[in-house]
Simulated scan of single mutants.
Amino acid sequence: MHAFHHHAVAALRINADPIAAGSPPLGDAEFRAIAAIMQDEARIHLSDAKTTLVHSRLSRRLREQGLGNFQEYVRLVQKDREERAAMVVALTTNHTHFFREAHHFDHFRATTMPWLQQRARRGAIRIWSAGCSSGEEVHTIAMCLLGESRQVPAWLRQADLKLLATDIAPHVVESASRGLYSAATVEAVPARYREAWMRSSGGDYQMAAEARSLVTAKVLNLFEPWPMRQSYDVIFCRNVMIYFDDQANAELQARFVELLAPGGFLYIGHSERLIGPAATRMTPCGHTIYRKEPR
């Protein structure tokens, strides 16, 4: 495994956390400095509307570092790479659930999977969940591939198939790798999939070994070099790009298109759109579903 940062960006929660009583104020200059660092480190755009969220999240970091004000904190993150990385994680939130935006998985099963089965006869299959959060998305993909019975399909047993799940926050990457979810979290999983590919574990549910073995979870920053050396057949990057500006999105989407194999599929979030070069190179084939032109 490559020993550099792999991060993919998680989403900022819209509703701010409550601010602890007695927290030092966050001045405009400090907010702008923090916003600039977030843009530089993760290309996340922090509008003025996020001031309360930044104040509440980073007040905890101040307390943990024993600092009395935000001026001291800004000086710290400007010189300390570890705290800068911790700040990025503190200001990103991972919100997801199983079978989120169900029409994507309907399309994946009906259209993408038959195409993948054909491709599997000729070579490796690679699928990427970019901005994977705690792994519900990538494990939904795994369950769709495995099917509704406990019998792993023959084509899958023989295929060289790997699912990559990446996120910027190490703690959620660990959750995605572990594949352990609360009973409330798995309620969204259709009963047949749950019975086939989840095992009860002390009141929680763990993804079955057959599902977990398909998934590799890594920390990755979407705007740093990517370690992948081969093309990908399917990329899911949903509800991540809403936190970037247009220039960042155009760059990121163009990189996705380059990484996709001819005929490959890109799934994006319900309020996201393709812009820039990617919009001319991808064909819409459903709501927020795009396909790269086959050669």
Rank of each mutant, 00 (worst) to 15 (best):
P284F: 00
E83Y: 04
D28T: 10
M241S: 14
I37L: 15
A159Q: 08
A10L: 03
H171L: 10
T52N: 12
A3S: 15
V234Y: 08
M241F: 06
D80E: 09
Q39C: 05
M113F: 07
A42I: 09
E210S: 14
G135E: 02
T112Y: 02
R126D: 00
R119Y: 02
Q151A: 14
G66T: 10
S133D: 09
D233F: 12
I44H: 11
H55I: 11
D246W: 15
A208T: 07
I127G: 05
T96Y: 00
M1I: 11
L62Q: 11
T140D: 00
V219Q: 13
A42K: 14
Q230V: 13
I44P: 04
H97I: 00
R63S: 13
E174G: 06
A159W: 08
Y73T: 01
H107L: 03
A110G: 02
D204K: 12
R100Y: 07
T288A: 01
V9Y: 09
R178T: 08
P277Q: 05
G276N: 03
M228P: 00
V88L: 00
A85H: 13
V257H: 06
E174T: 12
Q253A: 10
L164A: 15
H95Q: 15
N249D: 02
K162N: 08
P294N: 01
P277D: 10
A254I: 05
L146P: 06
R13P: 13
M241L: 06
F265G: 02
R281H: 09
A191P: 10
L163C: 06
R121G: 03
V9G: 05
F99P: 01
N94S: 08
A211G: 09
R60P: 06
A130K: 08
I125L: 15
P284C: 01
W115D: 07
D106H: 12
A10E: 05
D160T: 11
M198T: 09
G286T: 03
A154F: 11
H103I: 04
S129Y: 08
W226V: 03
F236L: 07
V88D: 00
M228L: 15
C132A: 09
R150I: 06
Q117G: 03
C144G: 02
M143A: 12
G202M: 10
D245K: 09
W197F: 04
A248L: 08
L252A: 09
S213Q: 15
C132H: 09
T96C: 01
M1N: 06
L260M: 06
L91C: 07
R150H: 12
V173K: 12
V54I: 10
F236W: 03
E195C: 04
K162V: 14
I34T: 05
E251A: 08
N239M: 06
L53Q: 10
V9H: 12
A33G: 10
E137K: 05
